[in-house]
Simulated scan of single mutants.
Amino acid sequence: MVRILCLVILICFSASTPGYSSLSVVEMILAAIFFVVYMCDLHTKIPFINWPWSDFFRTLIAAILYLITSIVVLVERGNHSKIVAGVLGLIATCLFGYDAYVTFPFRQPRHTAAPTDPADGPV
């Protein structure tokens, strides 16, 4: 969902002001990299990078940068594609903020050990 929204924002930014489109391009590339890392199970093979914290900071920084860029674009009051890109950027800010909330590493449940009591009761 967020990748599709980034693509639409990229198209709107490119139609209005090409200088703002780099944010969407970089975020789409980073999202594709994280997708490949998790789908190929590389996060277990590359242990020196803390992948949950990296994903959290990627989404948090994307939310902040989309918020700043969207506010700047909406304040400039350009053509319709700028306004649409600004509004979609605010929606992307909300989605990235929610994604940062969901991927926050301390919020993730920890695995607990299974009980070691015998199944048929105490001896």
Rank of each mutant, 00 (worst) to 15 (best):
V8C: 11
I9P: 00
I9V: 15
I11T: 06
I11L: 12
F13A: 07
S14F: 07
A15I: 12
S16E: 10
T17I: 09
G19V: 06
G19T: 05
Y20K: 07
S21D: 05
S21N: 08
S21A: 15
S21R: 07
L23Y: 00
S24T: 10
V25S: 07
V26A: 15
E27F: 05
A32I: 08
I33C: 11
F34A: 07
V36H: 05
Y38G: 12
Y38F: 13
M39V: 10
D41L: 12
P47S: 11
P47Q: 07
F48W: 15
W51V: 04
W53F: 12
S54L: 14
S54N: 10
S54K: 02
F57E: 05
R58M: 13
R58F: 14
I64C: 07
I64D: 02
I64H: 01
I64Q: 03
Y66G: 00
L67P: 01
L67K: 01
I68E: 10
T69C: 07
S70Q: 01
I71W: 02
I71F: 07
V73H: 00
L74K: 04
G78C: 07
N79V: 12
S81A: 12
S81R: 08
S81Y: 11
K82I: 05
K82Y: 09
I83N: 04
I83H: 04
I83Y: 07
L88D: 00
L88P: 00
G89V: 02
G89M: 04
L90V: 04
A92H: 00
L95F: 11
L95S: 10
F96P: 00
D99H: 08
Y101I: 08
V102A: 11
F104D: 03
F106A: 14
F106W: 15
R107E: 09
